[in-house]
């Protein structure tokens, strides 16, 4: 029975890493700030939560998993807020990055 949970955890962690890899590749390629902002929220939400939920499955139900669950709840609230504040601050202080010339 425990092997199934570890398997579910491992697949969740792998999917989280794949999401993060797409986000990181996109951030390295794109120079535009607002595109990077949406990619960073992809990394925050899709990658982070899949990995943390996978760690809970992988670790079984004990005290550590309770703390990881609390971190998940915390990140659920804080990450969208920090991305919004960054985007709003950049837009209001009229930071408009120039479109990169197509090669």
């Amino acid at each position: 029975m425990m092997e199934i949970f570890k398997l579910i955890g491992a697949t969740l962690i792998l999917s989280g890493i794949i999401f993060q890899f797409f986000g990181i590749y996109g951030i390295v390629v794109h120079r535009n700030f607002f595109v990077n902002l949406s990619l960073s929220s992809l990394i925050d939400s899709a990658g982070l939560f899949a990995i943390l939920i996978g760690l809970i499955f992988y670790n079984g139900l004990n005290m550590a998993s309770l703390k990881i669950g609390f971190i998940i709840l915390l990140m659920l609230l804080l990450n969208p807020l920090s991305n919004h504040i960054l985007g709003r601050g950049a837009y209001l202080s009229n930071y408009h990055p120039q479109r990169r010339a197509k090669k």
């Binding site: 951030i27 700030f33 990077n36 902002l37 960073s40 990394i43 925050d44 991305n83 960054l86 950049a90």
Partner: peptide, 9 residues
């Protein structure tokens, strides 16, 4: 602003 975003990540 990019630096703040990368700091967040």
């Amino acid at each position: 602003w990019d630096r703040l975003l990368f700091l967040n990540l």
